[in-house]
Design a protein around this nucleic acid. Structure first.
Lengths: 352, 352
DNA sequence: ATAATTTTGACCAGCGCTGTCATCGTTGCT
DNA sequence: AGCAACGATGACAGCGCTGGTCAAAATTAT
C-alpha cells in the first residue's frame, strides 16, 4: 500500500540517492538509469511523500492560488484547472481567499508565502495587475504566473498567460456589425481591470475597421455587475437615438442590461441585440440566452500551473522559458443577438 | 519569522514534548503548565508545521472537502468557512471536485482518503446523503461530518450538522400567510435532495397550521435551476385560479419564476409575491430583490469542521461528542413579496 | 593503455514533530 | 514518617526524504 523511495531503489537496482536524483530532475543521471528508475516508479505506483519532501527540502511542493473575485463560477473553474495540473505533477494546491483592497494585502501575501513555504503562486486579476504584489514576490524570489489580459507577448516578461480580450471583443463586435447593426453601444466593466480596457479597445477597433466612428455617448462606464448593466441600459435607452445593439463587458452586465430592457418593454433581440462576455452559467440562465465569448477558464488555469511548474522545477533554465500562451475567447452566438430590422430571420442560434 | 516548537518550549520553560502534548490536547498536562505553554504559543504566534506533523505522526493533519454542486456560490462559501477552521487548528484543506453520479465514486473517495492520508472528510449534499459513501468511510475508520437537511438531532448519529430547512420554510410560508396570501404555490427542487422535501414539508405544515388545505395543483415538481423556475411559473400562471404568491425552493428557481412572470407582464410583487431560499448573491441581483431565507454557509462549514476536529483530536472521547448543531436559515424580507391586494403598503423591505 | 571525466553510491545530518519509555515529583496511605 | 502508586515531564529515536561530501565505479577522451 505504502511505497517508499527505498522500494523503488530496490526494484530498479539503484541507490536511494539515484531515485531521489531522478525525482528531483537533477542532471547527471544517465538516460538508461533514468529509464530504469522511471519504470520502477511507474510499476510500483510510487508517489513521493509530500510531507517528507517538504520537510527535508528547502523547496516546497505546494503552490498557492489567491483570489478575490465576486464571480464564484470563475473561481471554481480556475480551481478545477489548477487542481488538475497539481495532481499531475504531485503538487498541492493551497487556496487563499482574501480581500485585494485591504491595505495590508502585500504583507498578507508575503506571509502566506513564507508560512506555507509556497513553491509558487498563481495570480489572477486583480492580483495579477498589482505591480507591488509582483515586486514583492520577485524580491522574495518566489515564482509566480500571472493571468492577464493582453494580446501580444511582451518580451522579457515570461511568467504570463495572456487572454486576448482585444481580439475576442473585436470578433463579437464584428458579429454585431455583420448582423447589420451600426449603432452599437458598449457597457464597460471596472476601469481598474485591464480586461475592460482591452475589450473596449477591441470594440473600437472593429467599428473603426468598418469605417464607423465611435459615438462617445454609446460608451457607458460602469463595473462588472448586474446592477451596472441595469443602469447602463437605462441610460442608453434614454438617449434620443437609441442603439440597436449593446455589447456588455461581461455576462453579468449583459444580464442586467437584458433585464432592464425587459422592464422597458423592449423586445430582445428584435428591438435590441445584447452580447456578453465570458460564457458564465449566467449567460445561459437569461432569456433569451446571451451571445457571448467563451473563456476556457479551466484550461487557462492548468496552462498557467504548467508554466509555473516549469519554473519551480529545480534545474529548470528559467531564462529559457519564454512561452506566453495566448488564449482567444471564442465567439458563441446565441439568441440574444439578431439581424437589424426587428424581424427574426434565419437561425443564428447555437445550442448552449 | 519561523517559530518552531523548540522556541515555544524555551519560552515556556518546558520540554519540547510538553509543548507537543499541549498542541495535541493530550491529557496529563497540569493546568498551570498548560497555561504557560499556551501563553508562549500565543506570544510567539506559533503555528505547527503541518509537514513535520504529518511525517512524524501516524495521524494526518489535512481534511478533505468533496464537492459536486452546480452552485458555485455555495461552494465558495463553504470553502471559506472550512478554510477558517482549518487555519485555526493548523489543518490543511484538500479540495476535491468530482462527479457524484460517477459509478466509481465510492472508490474514488476511498482512494482520496488513503492516498492523501486524510484525517477526515466534510460531506455536503449530495455526498452527505449517499449511504454507501458513509458506509465506506466508516469501514475505513475515517472520521467525517455530514451537512444535511434535518430539524431534529437523531440519537446515535453524531457526526452531523443540521440545517433546519423545515422550520425555515415554515417561517417563509408564514411570512406569506401574514401578508394575507392564501393561494400559495410551491416550486420544488430536485427530489433526490432531501432539502427539497424538508422545505416542502415546512411549507405544508405552515399552511395546515393556518387552517388551510394544501392544493396539489400548487405544488410543482422541478429541480434546482433557473429554467425549472421559468417552467414552473409558466405552469402556475396557466392555472384557472392563479396563486397570489409563490415559494420557490431556492433562489435560482425563484429568479426563474420572477423572470417568467415578467415576461407574462405580471407585476412583482403587486400581482404576485415570490420568495426564494438561500440568500445567494443571485437573490440580490434580481429586480425586485428576492425575499428569501439566509443560510449562513460559511458558518455552517466552519462548525462542521470544528466538529470534525473534535473527532480527529487524538484523545477525544468519541462517544461523548453528541452535539449536532442545528442551523435555522433566517427569514430575509425584501421587495419581492408584498401584502395581498396589489397595492404596496407599509414597508416590509430590508436592506440587503 | 592511461588520464580525465562523468555517473553512482555510501554515508551522515537534519527538517519539525510525535511515540515510547524512563524518570521525576506528588499525592495517598499505612 | 515512609513507601507505594500514580500523574506529570523529559530524553531519545525515528518518520521519509533531501542535501552535502566524498570516494568508487563506469564511461569517455586522449
Amino acid at each position: 500500500m505504502k511505497v517508499t523511495i527505498n522500494d523503488v531503489a530496490k526494484q530498479a537496482g539503484v541507490s536511494i540517492k539515484t531515485v531521489s536524483r531522478v525525482m528531483n530532475n537533477e542532471p547527471s543521471v544517465r538516460k538508461d538509469t533514468f529509464d530504469k528508475v522511471m519504470a520502477a516508479i511507474n510499476e510500483l505506483h510510487y508517489q513521493p511523500n509530500a510531507a517528507a519532501r517538504n520537510l527535508a527540502s528547502t523547496r516546497s511542493y505546494s503552490i498557492g492560488y489567491i483570489y478575490d473575485n465576486p464571480n464564484a463560477y470563475y473561481i471554481i473553474d480556475m480551481q478545477k484547472g489548477l487542481l488538475d495540473s497539481c495532481k499531475k505533477h504531485g503538487y498541492e494546491l493551497l487556496i487563499h481567499p482574501t480581500n485585494a483592497k485591504s491595505p495590508g494585502i502585500v504583507d498578507e501575501v508575503k506571509e502566506l508565502v513564507t508560512k506555507s513555504r509556497l513553491a509558487g503562486l498563481i495570480l489572477t486579476p486583480p492580483f495579477s495587475e498589482m505591480p507591488h504584489i509582483a515586486e514583492a514576490l520577485e524580491d522574495m524570489k518566489v515564482d509566480f504566473v500571472r493571468i492577464v489580459s493582453g494580446s501580444t507577448p511582451s518580451p522579457g516578461v515570461h511568467n504570463c498567460v495572456l487572454i486576448d480580450d482585444f481580439t475576442a471583443a473585436f470578433k463579437i463586435t464584428n458579429h454585431l456589425l455583420e448582423l447589420g447593426h451600426t449603432d452599437i453601444a458598449f457597457l464597460c466593466g471596472d476601469e481598474e481591470h485591464s480586461s475592460s480596457g482591452e475589450r473596449l479597445a477591441g470594440f473600437k477597433a472593429a467599428l473603426t475597421k468598418h469605417g464607423l466612428t465611435v459615438n462617445p455617448k454609446y460608451i457607458v462606464p460602469g463595473h462588472y455587475s448586474f446592477e451596472s448593466g441595469v443602469e447602463g441600459a437605462k441610460k442608453l435607452m434614454a438617449l434620443p437615438k437609441r442603439p440597436s445593439a449593446v455589447f456588455a463587458c461581461n455576462d453579468e452586465i449583459a444580464a442586467g442590461a437584458l433585464f432592464s430592457a425587459r422592464l422597458m418593454n423592449i423586445r430582445i433581440p428584435d428591438e435590441l441585440s445584447i452580447a456578453g462576455f465570458e460564457n458564465s452559467p449566467f449567460s445561459r440562465q437569461t432569456w433569451p440566452p446571451l451571445t457571448t465569448a467563451h473563456q476556457p477558464n479551466s484550461t487557462i488555469a492548468s496552462q498557467a500551473a504548467e508554466l509555473l511548474f516549469k519554473h519551480t522545477r529545480p534545474n529548470a533554465n528559467k531564462a529559457q522559458i519564454q512561452a506566453q500562451p495566448v488564449f482567444i475567447p471564442e465567439l458563441l452566438v446565441r439568441e440574444s443577438t439578431s439581424p437589424l430590422g426587428g424581424e427574426q430571420r434565419g437561425d443564428q442560434s447555437a445550442k448552449p
